[in-house]
């Protein structure tokens, strides 16, 4: 139902993001999607990767502060209006979205949107009821 997202604390310092990303790249961890939230003095790097367990271990061993969050991955048609429809379904059910980011892949026609919501289970049910496809962990990691 949900997907593991890895969040990493990024100190606001030139080169810090490059260092963190290199830790994963050097170890051959493949990124599916990423997003960065930033404030004036720090950033939060959020990642979907092909091997979340290994990515966490690598980052922690390198001294990064890491957290793992369960997020929803929704598959939508890669055409105008699809995201709006999904957001409408959530809004109608009074579900607020903490943050979201999207990515497309070469292998499928669908686009994927990652949603961070308060109640994953309820959101999942609501989306399912309205015929929205959610992607499981395996589907995403194997992309």
């Amino acid at each position: 139902m949900t997907v593991d997202q890895i969040s990493v604390f990024v100190e606001n310092k030139p080169g810090r993001l490059a260092e963190i990303v290199a830790i994963l790249g050097d170890a051959g961890v493949d990124m599916r999607a990423m997003s960065i939230a930033d404030t004036s003095d720090f950033g939060i790097l959020r990642l979907i990767v092909d091997d979340p367990k290994r990515a966490q271990d690598l980052l922690r061993t390198s001294g990064c502060v890491v957290s793992v969050t369960q997020v929803l991955a929704v598959a939508i048609a890669d055409k105008p209006g699809s995201l709006s429809a999904v957001l409408g379904v959530l809004a109608d059910a009074d579900i607020s979205v903490e943050y979201a980011y999207a990515f497309i892949t070469r292998k499928k026609d669908d686009a994927y949107v990652i949603f961070r919501v308060e109640d994953n289970e309820r959101s999942f049910e609501v989306l399912k009821k309205h015929g929205v496809k959610t992607a499981g962990a395996k589907e995403l990691y194997d992309l």
Binding site: S7, R46, R116
Partner: peptide
């Protein structure tokens, strides 16, 4: 640490 800016802030 948290994945949301709101919590960390």
């Amino acid at each position: 640490f948290s994945d949301t800016v709101r919590d960390v802030s």
